[in-house]
Design a protein around this nucleic acid. Structure first.
Length: 99
DNA sequence: AGTCGAGCGCGCA
DNA sequence: TGCGCGCTCGACT
């Protein structure tokens, strides 16, 4: 099982209305390659099945989506799931999903 | 506080 | 082979 596949598999498990962080995923995989997590999501082959918009930075910042730092798409999607997003930020305490 | 640099894994040239 | 990326965290200002 490739690193990317593991990342994608975990990402699929994020419930609707919740989000997770790159560091959480990296820790769940027992690795320090946080960047690779982002890379995997960026290069994911099944964007439909993988809700990449539910993966954010460790400080609650949305980060990037599709290579763009402030993509309203991502915010819109999250809001559509009941997540409060303001200025590309959200409340990790409320919405963080841990494995 | 803010900034800097090193570490990791995979993809693309 | 080598470099860059949807990142993070510890050390220094």
């Amino acid at each position: 099982m490739n690193f990317s596949e593991k990342v994608l598999a975990l990402t699929k498990k994020i419930p609707k209305g919740k989000v997770t962080t790159y560091s959480e995923i990296a820790k769940a995989l027992n690795t320090k390659a946080y960047r690779a997590v982002g890379s995997a999501l960026r290069n994911n082959k099944t964007p439909i099945l993988i809700p990449c918009h539910r993966v954010i930075n460790s400080d609650g910042n949305i980060g990037s989506y599709k290579g763009i730092k402030d993509s309203n798409e991502k915010v819109r999607l999250l809001k559509g799931e009941g997540v409060e997003v303001r200025d590309n930020r959200l409340d990790l305490k409320k919405y963080l999903f841990r494995f």
